[in-house]
Amino acid sequence: MPFYYDFEQPIESLDEDVEKLKQQQAAGQDVRERLDKLEARLLEKKREVYANLTSWQRVQLARHPMRPGALQILPHLLDDFLELHGDRQFRDDPAVVTGLGRLGGKTLLVAAQAKGKGTQETLRRNFGMAHPEGYRKALRIFETASRLGCPILTIVDTPGAYPGLAAEERGQAEAIARNLLEMSDLGAPILTVIISEGGSGGALGLAVADRIYMLENAIYSVISPEGCAAILWKDAARAPEAAGALKLTADELLKMGLIDGIIPEPLGGAHRDVIQSANEIRRTLELALADVLQAPVDELCRRRRKRFRTIGT
């Protein structure tokens, strides 16, 4: 079943009409002219609706139930992939998928936050909210990458690090802090793509990178708009207002110089065409990879440190 937000209502009804006509066409009726007209109107309407999204509407698209996650995108983005499991200390955290990836003849070490699709899979992957072992698993492959001289790709997609009992017992804060420290000094190029939600420290734990990109409708924030509104105004219903104040969209982050680029999405969001979305990510990564692989690793590290050192001074 397709899913539409309130602000997408005009598109939903046009989508339905187009679908009906297509069925008639399949049944042998000549509706070509009407279909062409309707599709032109749909395109125009989409352009109108998606050209001026508010911050809150972007948040909604970033959380769209049909939005592709890392597990949907990676098969179209990489030429091949071999999953590697486990943090070598406690367990394998399904909220973070790690492995060897191939992209245009190069081997990347990949760490991707995975929300999973369907109830069972989503629960198993804990909605993409990693436990400490997820961050330690990522760090384990970062260290391998640095030793073997491979670039790193991280895919960020999480509401945040998991705020649970066991996560605290096993040192959630320590795991994230260690990643921040090690990544700031890691001898391998690091590329990060925030595909949907970049939720606070849980996202940053995989995002201390040389190049940081966001999909057009992705968000990146220190706190969820709901959380911010609840703390500040004691009213989670004011989340749309908080979304605006937090400046969490790709546009705003690029303007503030905190990310390196925005990866375009198909009109209406990444879920409208997963393959096209993956192709766009691939195009961006290929250019970025060629760029970072030119610089000596020491120089990259120095620039990476400087990048984070100079934010907010």
Partner: peptide, 18 residues
Amino acid sequence: ARMQEGIFSLMQMAKTSA
């Protein structure tokens, strides 16, 4: 992190760790 400084406060985690 200080919510009112949004993403800039998040980035201070990276800055201090570095």
